[in-house]
Simulated scan of single mutants.
Amino acid sequence: MHSNSLQRSSFCNAHVDPAAHPKRCLFISVSLITAAHIIEAAIYASAFWVAVHQIDIGSLQLAQDPTENLYPMDYFYFALVNLTTLGRGDLQPSGHFRFLTGISAFHGFLLITASGGYLLQVMSGKNPFRK
């Protein structure tokens, strides 16, 4: 595991050097962080769907019409809104499913905060992967 960590660090050191290429590094960093957060939302959307339809720990409903069926994109939208802690309220969880959504909001807050700290380092010309 230690050698894998070194390889990943070497890859990042080779591609993220804000002192040499500040605009390119910022573009790469923002692009990769955005992709990572979209993947996280997709993972949470899948977990939400499984929690509602397979495990049956609660439900997710439209606030305006609780009888309307939800589609996979609705779960993805809910995961994005929840991970960003926006909390629009147009989709409402119920039952024990609320606990899972609370955990995802906390997790999203931590990840977005860490991403912001990383981007601040890149914008200030520092390479976050170098000691």
Results as ranks from 00 to 15, higher is better:
Ala45Ile: 00
Ser59Leu: 00
Lys23Arg: 09
Pro72Phe: 00
Gly116Tyr: 11
Met123Asp: 00
Gln61Asn: 03
Glu40Cys: 10
Ser94Trp: 08
Tyr75Asn: 08
Gly87Cys: 14
Gly108Leu: 07
His2Phe: 05
Ser94Ile: 09
His53Gly: 06
Ile43Leu: 09
Leu86Gln: 14
Pro18Ala: 01
Ala63Arg: 08
Ser3Val: 11
Tyr75Phe: 15
Met1Phe: 03
Gln54Asp: 09
Ser10Gln: 06
Gln54Arg: 09
Ser5Thr: 05
Gln121Asp: 03
Arg88Ala: 15
Asp17Phe: 00
Ile112Ser: 13
Phe76Asn: 09
Ala105Tyr: 07
Pro18Ser: 02
Phe76Arg: 08
Arg88His: 15
Ala41His: 02
Val16Gly: 01
Cys25Tyr: 04
Ala45Leu: 01
Leu86Thr: 15
Asp74Gln: 05
Val16Asn: 00
Gln64Phe: 03
Lys23Ala: 13
Leu62Ile: 07
Ile112Phe: 14
Val50Gly: 03
His37Met: 13
Ser115Val: 02
Tyr77Met: 03
Gly125Glu: 09
Tyr118Phe: 15
Leu86Trp: 12
Ile39Ser: 14
Ile112Gln: 10
Ile28Gln: 09
Leu32Arg: 11
Arg88Gly: 15
Asp74Leu: 12
Ser115Lys: 07
His2Pro: 00
Leu86Ser: 13
Ala20Arg: 15
Ala41Ser: 12
Ile103Glu: 06
Arg24Phe: 01
Gly116Asp: 09
Phe109Met: 11
Pro66Glu: 01
Gly117Ile: 04
Ser115Trp: 04
Ala42Met: 09
Gly125Ile: 03
Thr113Val: 12
Tyr77His: 13
His21Tyr: 12
Phe76Ile: 11
Phe129Asn: 05
Arg130Lys: 12
Tyr77Thr: 02
Asn69His: 03
Ala51Leu: 13
Ala51Ile: 02
Leu6Ile: 07
Lys131His: 11
Thr34Leu: 14
His21Arg: 13
Gly95Asn: 11
Ile57Ala: 03
Ala20Phe: 04
Thr85Gly: 00
Ile43Lys: 07
Gly116Pro: 10
Asn127Ile: 01
Leu6Arg: 12
Phe48Arg: 04
Gln54Glu: 06
Leu26Trp: 04
Ala20Leu: 12
Asn4Val: 05
Ser9Ala: 13
Ile33Gly: 02
Gly108Glu: 10
Ile28Tyr: 05
Thr84Glu: 04
Pro18Glu: 03
Arg98His: 11
Pro93Asn: 15
Asp65Lys: 11
Gln64Arg: 08
His53Gln: 14
Ile33Ala: 14
Thr85Val: 07
His37Asp: 06
Ala105Pro: 09
Asn127Cys: 04
Phe97Ser: 12
Phe97Tyr: 15
Ser31Met: 15
Gly87Asp: 14
His107Trp: 06
Ala20Cys: 06
Pro128Cys: 07
Ser10Glu: 08
Glu68Ile: 11
Lys126Ser: 13
Phe11His: 03
Gly102Cys: 04
Leu32Thr: 05
Gly89Phe: 04
